[in-house]
């Protein structure tokens, strides 16, 4: 199709109705891009004001969703641990900007996680509707980390694990006490030698 061969009225109408065959749709669209006369014909046939109105109404219409519009525990936990997929992270971030309830619960968990023993979360948080079914299994696995959300500090593999809650950590002396004790011992030995 060239600019010289204008679209017929039937072709323009078929384009507006979405009735063109896929093989001709792209070529027709390319022609419209290049041909002002056909674009004018298209503007006459497709009333942009009706399209804009329908678009605005569709945006403003609420979703028919009895499902909870709120973040689940797994979303909140994933946000705290930095294990959400990017789409869920975007959603949670946008949702907590709108929803005081979920923002409040997320803030509470972010605060609470700082007093918990630093252990790796048991399982990555999840991508699908059966979020609850994947609530952490007893066996630990490595988490999938979110690329951009700041992570909470975690233990490196080589670090000594913290004591479980209720266990007493083995007593260790600060370095300065050890150094002072060593120096005192040397001084006593010198005095004794004199």
């Amino acid at each position: 199709m060239t600019a010289a061969e204008h679209l017929s009225l039937d072709q323009v109408r078929a384009y507006v109705r979405g009735a063109l065959h896929p093989s001709t749709l792209v070529a027709t669209d390319d022609h419209l891009e290049a041909c002002a006369a056909c674009r004018a014909a298209l503007a006459r046939e497709s009333d942009a004001s009706f399209g804009a109105e329908a678009f605005g109404r569709a945006l403003a219409a609420p979703e028919a969703r009895p499902e909870s519009p709120h973040a689940t525990f797994d979303h909140l936990r994933g946000a705290v641990d930095g294990t959400l997929s990017s789409i869920d992270r975007q959603w949670v971030e946008a949702h907590v900007r709108l929803c005081a309830m979920c923002a409040d619960e997320l803030e509470d968990l972010e605060r609470f996680v700082t007093v918990l023993p630093l252990r790796k979360p048991a399982a990555p948080v999840v991508e699908d509707e059966n979020l609850d079914a994947l609530w952490p299994p007893p066996v630990a696995s490595h988490a999938v980390l979110s690329p951009s959300r700041p992570r909470l500090p975690r233990l490196d593999e080589g670090d000594e694990p913290p004591a479980r809650y209720g266990e007493t950590a083995p007593p260790t002396l600060p370095l300065w006490i050890k150094v002072a004790a060593g120096a005192s011992l040397v001084a006593i030995l010198q005095l004794w030698a004199c």
Partner: peptide, 13 residues
């Protein structure tokens, strides 16, 4: 309830 469920993800028994 959220705090308790979070504890259960931390491998603390």
């Amino acid at each position: 309830a959220n705090r308790i469920r979070l504890i259960a993800t931390r491998g603390v028994g």
